[in-house]
Structure formats: structure tokens, C-alpha cells
Design a protein around this nucleic acid. Sequence first.
DNA 1: CGCCTCAATGTACACGTGTACATTGCCATG
DNA 2: CATGGCAATGTACACGTGTACATTGAGGCG
Lengths: 331, 331
Amino acid sequence: MRSSDNPSRKATSFDVARQAGVSRATVSRTFTPNASVSPETREKVHKAAKELGYRVNYLARSLINRRSDLVGIVVAGMDNPFRAQQVHEIAKALVSRNFRPILLPADQGESADHVMDQLLHYNVSGVLVTSDAPPTELCREFAVHGIPIVLINKGDPIPLVDRVISDNATAGRVAAETLVECGAKQLAVLSASHVSYAARHREAAFVARGMDLGCAPRVVPVLINDYQNGLAAGRDLDGIDGLFCINDYMACGVIDALRTKPQDPKNRIRLIGHDDIGQAAWQAYGLTTFRQPCDIQASQAIDLLISRMADPELEERTVLTPVTLVRRVTA
Amino acid sequence: MRSSDNPSRKATSFDVARQAGVSRATVSRTFTPNASVSPETREKVHKAAKELGYRVNYLARSLINRRSDLVGIVVAGMDNPFRAQQVHEIAKALVSRNFRPILLPADQGESADHVMDQLLHYNVSGVLVTSDAPPTELCREFAVHGIPIVLINKGDPIPLVDRVISDNATAGRVAAETLVECGAKQLAVLSASHVSYAARHREAAFVARGMDLGCAPRVVPVLINDYQNGLAAGRDLDGIDGLFCINDYMACGVIDALRTKPQDPKNRIRLIGHDDIGQAAWQAYGLTTFRQPCDIQASQAIDLLISRMADPELEERTVLTPVTLVRRVTA
DNA sequence: CGCCTCAATGTACACGTGTACATTGCCATG
DNA sequence: CATGGCAATGTACACGTGTACATTGAGGCG
């Protein structure tokens, strides 16, 4: 009389076994792929399970399986529409592969340590990080426990930590080339490179290629890569006719600033962003930008997770995802 | 020799007990509030735990505690910036109260049943729903298991299901009044009322108040409340000088459509949106709109969850959260 | 000193599940 | 018919934890 017939308690495999007239092990086997159960008993068990509203308790299962199929998503800066889309795609991809995403917002700037620590209590099967990269120390602790971490477009190499990174070098290079093709001569790049790995690399590639082409770009630093900083920077911009914004979120601010500024029509500023957020395609912006394939990145990240779950000792890997230039009206 | 000294396995309370020279029960008590442990043993246990990198396994604990502190978030339409913000606020609020949000994207239109079914396997402590309301059938199944569901701004009353809803009636009423105050005479409301509970109620209140004021509003139906539909509808708009958009996401589309349209300057369209998404404050839009306090809604929703966890038999409740009109340039 | 109280700790069971091992019975093959 | 193989099922243990109950010992009080 372990599980009583108290209807408010969830039915257990014990209850189903009794109802179906089989042993508990057989019930368990019925819900385990590739287990040996005769068709008619399987039928009986399914019927009993349905009647009792039984569901396998994955948390109990995780104890013996040693895998919870929970995967942490650590994210900061969800006000950036690109981040929101990224989270959405990652969550969808995880669910479609039978993982459950457990969402951990890390306030921007603030360290994600405390939040990631919680994940260790939940026996997560892995962690996807799109906020700032966690400190090496913490990463090693995860590695010791055999919990894979994948960084998405963040951070320099860390031992045993895989990364999916966008092709920032190509983006920076093509941005410079495209702006020059459009006739720009005075290049600049807008980026908060100290807070973002991606920004650093896009900026560097842009500057390098710009110099190759004979137009040494000016680097305009900002505090954060957001709309407000784009707006403010856009107002101060001067003597520039080709601008690369490290992301679209900021580029929208720049466009809004330029809109209210007296423009020299024969010398308007060409503008290129990055991410292809929804707003870039809005009629008010028509922003030329680089599309990052969020869905593919998510999918790749999960592939990395899975393969490292199988073999935690793997050398760390880096997957490069391509960017494609989407030309609209700003360049 | 249950837990061997295999370093790749996580340390268990057993290991900590051995290291600290106490029983396993004492270790458990050390990590349980209000349990009786002498200060010096507590110290010993903490030391041993730190050395071994021990963390309580919440999943194992949930078996005996009957509460996992996992809370499901079911959400659809994350492309709408308001939804993204909502998810962010909910996740933050949950984490700050020591719950873990498990994010379940429900593809818009598609039923969330399958996705919510998964939650039953994870013994969630509750579910927050911001997508379409789940069918009564499914809700009752959750109720039977004592799992609280809270709907946020969605759905008509369901037995035993609490709701947090925005003051849609006031929004609709004040929208009509404000537009008329601004001098509008030909009112209209843009809304996909068949897919959204909130839209239905805002629309109804707007129409009712408009008629009171002697300007019977025209109802312009759309398929979905998104940017694209706003854009398309905005192009066809005619003979209108005061428009209430059921949400900002759509209103941005309308503004973009109007921007490229030949405007009659002495009779421009006054426009009011709803949600106060980030873009509403962008310079390109300056949208007058109603602010929904996401953070308060999230907090209230969790309060409802907690109180119903304590007493699942409670009569269903509805919490109304206020809206405040934010006046910018469109009205 | 004898007795009672109470804080501190250990023992043992429960939570719901997967699976190694043993057992059963059927069927084919010699 | 005897035997071996194999599918199907049951038994028993393990996963990591919380806690009721029993036990111990120290201290207060008559």
C-alpha cells in the first residue's frame, strides 16, 4: 500500500502495474524504447496508464539515468530583439529534440555565476550561454561534473568549452567592401567592443579591410550596443559617409538620429548593421544588414552539446556559422 | 561503498557525511532551514561540502518534497517585442523567488496541449500561460494533480484557474476619449479580435465609449496583431482621423504605412497603441500608448501561483493590473 | 542523587523510477 | 524426447534525498 488511491496524488508506475495486473518493471519497460514487452501486455499497460492519467516522472527517472534532459539557457540583454529571437529559436530547437530549456536571465553586466550555480542543483544535461562568457573557473567546475557548456557568439576559447560563433571576420570585411563600393570614403564603425566579443571581432575585421582599401576607418566607441547609444552617437556623427554598426539594435538608433539631422543629400551616410532583426526590415528603417541564422546556430549548439555529453573529454571545438548580406535601402 | 570516489561523479550527501565524520541525515539537516544542528557540526559539514563541490540534488529532493520549484512558461508569438519583455520579466521574477522557469514556446495558432503535457512529466510547481488559453479539459487535469495555472491576459474564466489581466476596459475607454479630445471625429479600431482575448475586450470598450461620445468607431479586422498586418491595414485606411491599435507591434506598421502616404496635414490621423514596447519610444514612432506593467503582472501571477499551491481548492481569482497612458507625439 | 527536558544525532524508511539478474515457458533443433 | 535458445516477465537493488522515530547525553531542579 505504498501509493494509496488518493486521487490528488499523481498515479505512479505502481498504480498502473496493479491496474494492469503486471509487475512494476513491466510498466517501466512499456515506456522505455527498445525494451522487451509483448504487444498485448503493452496494450494493457497503455490502457491502464490512460485511465489513471499516468505520466512517467522524469525527475525520478533522472536519478537513475543520470540525465535530466534539462538544459540551461543563460541570457542577458533581452531588450535587444536579436537576443529575444535567439532565445526563441534555442528554446524551440531544444524542445524539438526532447530537451527542456530552463531560462536564466543574467542581468547585463552582473556576473552570471550565481545563476549558473543554481543549474548544478538541477543536474542539467548542458548549458547554452548567450550572455557574457562565464569565468574559466566556473566552466571547469561544470566540466568536472561532465556538464557540457556551449557559448554562442561569446568569449575567447576556454578549455573543454565548445563555441558556435558567427563569421564576424567576414561580416566586418564585407561591410567595409560594400560601403566602399557604394562610394563611401570616410568610414567609421560603431561598437562597444569592451562588452562584446562579437563586436570586437567585427570591428577589427572592418578596420583591417578598410585600411586595405585605403580608407582607414574611425572607431567610435559606445558604452552598450543598444538603441539609446546608437541614437546619441548618431547625433554627434560628423565627417562620415559610411558607417558599420556592430548590431541592428544600435543601427536603428543611428537612423533615427540621422533622420532629424540636416542631411547633405549628395553625400548621405551609407549604413550597414548586423543581425537582421525584425525591425531592420521595417519600412522606417530598410536597414542593410548581415543575417545571422539563429535557427542554425541553435541547432549546431545542441549538436555540440549532445556530442560532448557522449564524450566529455573531447577537445574544444568551434563552429563557424555563415552570415549573408541582406541589402535594403541604407547601403 | 555506494558513491565511489570516482571524481567525475557528483559528490552526494553520503560523501560529505563521510568526509565530515557525521551521518548523512546531519548533512541533510545542515542544508535544511530550521533544522536542529549544532554550530560546530554545521561548520564541519559546510567545510566538507565546499571541498567536495557538493550541491544538493534538487531533483532527488523533489521526490520526497513533492515540489520541484520548476515553473512552466508557455508563450507564443515571441516576435512581438512585448511578449519578449513579458517573458524576460516573468523569468526574472521567478528566479528571484527561487523558482526555475522552464520555457515552452508554443507555435502561434498551434495548440499548446502537447507542450503542456510535457510539463506533467516534470512535476512542475505551476504554469504561467501567455499564449492562447489551454482548453478547459487540460486545465482540469492540472487541477487534479494540484498544479496551479495562471493565465496572463488570456482567456475567459476557467474553473480553478487564476488570471492576471490588464485593465483592457479602461484602455479602450480612455483611448476613445483621448482621440476625441485631440479633435478626432472619425474613429476606428484595428484588431484581430478572434485570436486575442485582450484585443476583444479593448475593442469592445473602445467601440462602446466611442458611441457614447457620438462617434461610432469603425472596426477594422486583421488576421494577426503583428507589424505586417498593421502595415497592410495602414495603407488601405481611409476617411479616418483617430485610430486605436490593439497593440504597439501593429501600430508601428500603421505608422510606417502612413509615413509613405500622402497626408492631409490639416487632418492627420491621431494614433494610440497599447503595451508601450521599446519601439514605441523610438524617435521614428513616438507612439502614444498604454503601458502595461510587465513586472507587476509577473509578480502578481507568481503570488497567485504560490497561494494556490498552498490551497488548490481556492475559488478562481482575477487580478486586474492598471494601465497608464503614455503620451508621445501620435496623439 | 534521581528524574525530567530537550538539543543533537543516528537509524530506517519513503519518494518514483530503471535495469541486472533470475525465472518461466515456448519453440525449434538435434 | 532431451536440450538449448530466447522472448517475456518478476524480483531486488540502486539513484540521492528528507524526516519520523529512537537514542544519547548534558543540564536543570527537586
